[in-house]
Design a protein around this nucleic acid. Sequence first.
DNA 1: GGAAAACTTGACCAAGCGGTCAAAAGTGAG
DNA 2: CTCACTTTTGACCGCTTGGTCAAGTTTTCC
Lengths: 215, 215
Amino acid sequence: MDVTVNTKKDAGDKPTRIQEINRRIILEAALDVFSTYGFRGSTIDQIAEKSGMSKPNLLYYFKRKQDIYVSVLEETLEEWLQPLHELKPEGDPVEELRRYISRKIEMSSKRPEASRLFANEILHGAPAIKGFLSTSLKKLVDEKASVIRQWVSEGRLAPIDPYHLIFMIWATTQHYADFDVQVRAVLGPQVDKAGFAEQSAQAVLSLILNGIKVR
Amino acid sequence: MDVTVNTKKDAGDKPTRIQEINRRIILEAALDVFSTYGFRGSTIDQIAEKSGMSKPNLLYYFKRKQDIYVSVLEETLEEWLQPLHELKPEGDPVEELRRYISRKIEMSSKRPEASRLFANEILHGAPAIKGFLSTSLKKLVDEKASVIRQWVSEGRLAPIDPYHLIFMIWATTQHYADFDVQVRAVLGPQVDKAGFAEQSAQAVLSLILNGIKVR
DNA sequence: GGAAAACTTGACCAAGCGGTCAAAAGTGAG
DNA sequence: CTCACTTTTGACCGCTTGGTCAAGTTTTCC
């Protein structure tokens, strides 16, 4: 799979009103479809139907299936990394991490499709965003890891490798979105009760925070 | 996707020597292919080529693509859950959980394809093993959760919901297998150095164990 | 050694799907 | 209103892919 973006109007032509609206509609439908069936498992027709437009029309806005996929992926990526950006060195370590974890959990519970879209992409070798991962993402993580390392060296956090900590936060917070069916199969209908999300958040938070507090 | 197994000789005819050998070969190739590309993304031809046999021949052993998929899934499932079976109420809680986590990490690192196969299946709604999840798996988890709950009520573990603890162990231990490309993108070539697996294991272990020890 | 059963395969088919095209319908600036 | 431009679509094409089939080859067992 290639990585070029190549939407209809590649050049700087500013999009018309109709273009803006229809691109939005398509990308929203595409997120739904791609996150459910994966890239290969999704068809242009599915996206077209969900968008309420014909397949050729959809192809008028995005020349190739891949372009839709990459666009929706890129769009969601920025939003997805926002919480990590907001981890500030000035704050109290435990409090900063608590907020980070809380926001990640909140996002996973409110937009599980986004979480699944990434999970699927990465699971299959991240063909479309490998470049992004090893540049922008790496840079961001390196930056925040050194913040955490600083906290540790100041004795404000238990000694733990910052990268592994970040991975663990990702793993645990996204688990409930990505593996939803499994969670449901094991826990049954209580998953739908009000307050379940909060309860999970509480469990994740207390375990991780306990693990990183100095004692 | 249906869930029937339907291999060539449905009846109790015991397989011939050749059947046994070729089924093995096919299932091994299939694990590789399915775990890399997912069900929809894999083709029978790929599996046939990897098995060194023709497509019609492969279809002689498994009537449909799905049958191969379900077989390899079922086969790996049992192996995958073995460590949880071995969590014994008689042992020391922290020591039991340490061993469980260690074994899970070891399996994820030695057989990442198996981990990815499940991850992909569940991510897409577990069409082929939903039944299994809500019966056998649920039963097993319920059983072990009550062991953990007992430990907590005896004050031998910090108060944490056993189900969430199990989910967190699954999430963290499988993260390094399922999201390998992401880990690589962020950490670079050090991932291939000897001892990296041990280092990750140590990080996961220390964080979770710290989180569950009574203080 | 030979017949029956098990195994193997090249050729083929039908459906699904990504993508094209030409022509029709709609939109908007002057 | 008009004309150029944008948007929309039915029909269609070619390739991939799951699956079949009939005919050939090998194995097994007496």
